[in-house]
Every structure is written in C-alpha cells, then in structure tokens.
Design a protein around this nucleic acid. Structure first.
Lengths: 173, 173
DNA sequence: AAGTTTTGAGTAAGTAATCACTTATTTTTT
DNA sequence: AAAAAATAAGTGATTACTTACTCAAAACTT
C-alpha cells in the first residue's frame, strides 16, 4: 500500500461521508488526495472498486468493535458491553461510521448483515440469565442499539449519560 | 395539480427510492413519467424543487401516521399504538418509507426532527403510568422504534408477530 | 559489479456520454 | 383569443473512464 493509494482512500472516506457516494466525483477525490485522476483507476479499477475497498475497511472495523462483546463469556458483562458499545465510539470516528450507515441505505446490495454475531452472543447471554424470551430480548436490544447508533451519529440524543445510566438500571448490570 | 405533474412525482418517488436522489437523473424521471424533461423544470423549478415536494409529502404522511398515537389520551393505549406503529405500515408502502429513511442520511440538511411529537406523547404516557424515568423510557422506545422501522424496511426482522407479542407482554399493554 | 530488461506507480490530456437546465415553439384548456 | 401546459431541441459543464506516455526501482543476465 503506497502513500498515494492511502491518500485516495482517506480522501474518498472524507468526501463520501460528507456528500455521499453518488454525489462525489472521481475527479474531486483525486483533487483532494493530491493525485491524478487516472491513479484511482489504476489502483481500484473503477469507482465502485474504490467504494468496495472502503466498505471492506468498515466491515473490518465493525468486527473489531464487536469482538469485545462477542468474546465475553460472563452473560451480564456481555449485555453491559453491548449497551456501552454505541457510547464507546469516539466522536472523531463519527464521520467514518456515518458513512457506513449511509452506505447501508445507498447500496443495500453491498450490505451483509454484520449484526449476526452480536445477536447470537446476546441471545446466549439472555438465555443464561433465564430470561423468558431470549431471542426476542436480543432482537429487541439489537434494534434499539441500531436506532441509538443512528441517533448518536445524527446528534439526536440529548442526554447520553442519563440514558446509559437508565440502561444499566433497566438491565441490572 | 395536473395529471402529468402527479406522474412526475410518482416516477421520482419510485426512482429516488430505488437508486437514490443523486443517482437519478431528471431525464430518467421524465422518461419514466412519460413526460418531456422540460416539464419537470416548469413545475418544480429545479431538481431540488422536485425533491422538496417529495420530502413535504413524506412529512405529511408521517404526521398522519403519528396522529393516532399522539392524540390518544389513555396512556396504556398510547404505548400500545406506538408499539404497533412500525408493524402497521403495509408492505406496499415500503418503497416510500425506504426513500424517507434514505433521504435522512443523504440530505440531513433537509431533515427536520419529526419524532418530537411522538416523544412528548410517550413521555406523558410513561409519566401517568408512574414509570421511574419517563423521559428516558420514551427516549429508549423512540430509538427502538427507529431501529425497528429501519430493520423492517431492510427485511432484517425475522419473526414479526412474535416480536410484537413480546413487546405487548414487556410493556403490559 | 555492471549492464539490460521488466515492472509498477504515476501523470496529462484526452474520450463519448450524461448531467441539470434553458429557450423557442406548439398544443391544449378555458 | 388569451393563458397555461407541454414539448423538442438545444446549451455548457461535468461525468466515469481511457490512452499514451514518463520515470524510478526491482529483477535478471552476463
């Protein structure tokens, strides 16, 4: 991975996040990266190839974000870590995650369901804690976390600490 | 509102929903609507004007969707109606709502926070029912409903009836 | 080690197609 | 006949992508 290739990815990350994939031209990406436009096509084949590189990056970072929750064996801690997950993302990374959310809607065909391992881990945790409907409990929580993540990225969540406090109390963790 | 103008809106609705706003050209909209391209600009001024007409339509339909929940005075029923809301949307309208979700990410500047009246209604309902933290309870539920809506539109929800059942039990409504 | 060949990174200047939008004119409605 | 609705045929700008080329470093040959 040469320096200029990394510059291209970083520029595309920035511009796709700000304006969206379709609204960003390859010439703008080249300009922001300080690179000739042709180099984008040498390295990535076409515009979609550049996008796929970025999506792959997102999936990798999502996996490593989940890893801590999924590998946890103590059920209460699994749930606690899941609840803390959306709040644990630093604001400096919001642009990056906003792009991933955006792409889920802009290009649904590229979107694998990355939530699955998290759902399994939560279902197991609720089961071990003798919840009546572990599967539904996990499904419920997954949708909440998805909605909360979306809300945080859009700055739609007013009192983060109070909400986290409430969650800890509700789930007794 | 002439027939051709309605055709334009319907075609734009379909195409924007399928491919996104930026990926859809005015010429394609005209073609699908069976109309000359110039007519779009006569009626809507520019492409963004057409988009705004569609956004206004979405806000109106969202308001009427919420109305039943917001106007309900019996607290338990407010909550029940809110929980049923995402499931009450017929699949034939999924394209329309998918577009609204998509636009929230693609053009956040055009997106007012339409959830506010629902949040107020839910907070009041939880308060009347003597919940310990009515505000947080409402916030929690709003994010869940948002995530659930997103999940339903992406066909990410496996057992809808079972989930609704679980919700009714959990909230005792 | 010196000389030769190959390769991969990079660029400048194109390409045809498509973009949002305009203008002049014709058709339809009232 | 006046006004409104609709169209056909354009406009320059921008799109994703290609072509023909340079240059430096790596690999191979002697």
């Amino acid at each position: 991975m040469t320096e200029k290739k990394e510059n291209i990815i970083q520029a595309a990350l920035d511009l796709f996040a700000q304006q969206g994939y379709h609204a960003t031209s390859t010439s703008k990406v080249a300009q922001q990266a300080g690179v000739s436009e042709g180099l984008i096509f040498r390295h990535f084949g076409n515009k979609e190839g550049l996008l796929k590189a970025i999506i792959a990056l997102g999936e990798e970072r999502l996996r490593s974000l989940y890893a801590d929750v999924v590998l946890e064996t103590v059920p209460k801690k699994t749930i606690e870590k899941a609840l803390r997950l959306p709040f644990s993302v630093p604001e400096s990374e919001y642009d990056f995650w906003r792009l991933q959310y955006k792409l889920k809607w802009e290009l649904p065909e590229h979107t694998s369901n990355k939530m699955e391992p998290l759902r399994v881990a939560l279902t197991n945790a609720f089961q071990k804690l003798d919840y009546a409907s572990p599967e539904m409990e996990a499904e419920f929580l997954i949708h909440f976390l998805d909605g909360l993540g979306s809300g945080l990225l859009k700055n739609d969540v007013a009192q983060k600490e109070k909400l986290l406090e409430y969650l800890m109390k509700t789930y007794k963790v």
